[in-house]
């Protein structure tokens, strides 16, 4: 799960983007990718209007992987005009069930 540095001038925008990414749902679980703990962090290059989302998938060859990645890019570019988004898929740390937020667990009925 991403953390925010208050001294970072982009921290507010990062947090806003994280909130926006709650609109991206896992098509099988019907839970947003933030509460699933799939997004590890966001880097913003404000002058160039570039956003890099560092995230993972629940399995390295998740059949819905392409769709989720494409949804993340569409979501950022659709909500932040002029911004270009890229997604960096990482496998370290490996996603586990502990990555799910409390809200995610509540939504899953745990």
């Amino acid at each position: 799960m991403a953390s925010f540095d208050i001294t970072d001038p982009n921290s507010f925008l990062k947090e806003q983007m994280m909130e926006t990414l709650r609109l991206v749902m896992d098509p099988e679980l019907h839970i947003n990718i933030i509460d699933l703990g799939l997004v590890y962090g966001i880097e913003i290059e404000a002058p160039k209007k570039r956003v890099k989302v560092e995230m993972t998938l629940s399995s390295s060859y998740c059949p819905m992987g392409e769709s989720i990645v494409s949804a993340v890019k569409n979501c950022i570019e659709g909500h932040y005009e002029g911004y270009e988004a890229t997604v960096d898929l990482v496998w370290e740390p490996v996603w586990s069930y502990d990555s799910i937020t409390d809200e995610g667990k509540r939504l899953l009925g745990l």
Binding site: V24, P27, H30, M64, S67, S70, N74, C75, G78
Partner: peptide
């Protein structure tokens, strides 16, 4: 449904509210 959903909605997810598989 997943196979068909990917074909129809992969490019729309994140932009529009879409049906689920």
């Amino acid at each position: 449904p997943f196979i068909v959903w990917v074909k129809h909605y992969e490019h729309l997810t994140g932009k529009f509210k879409t049906p689920m598989p």
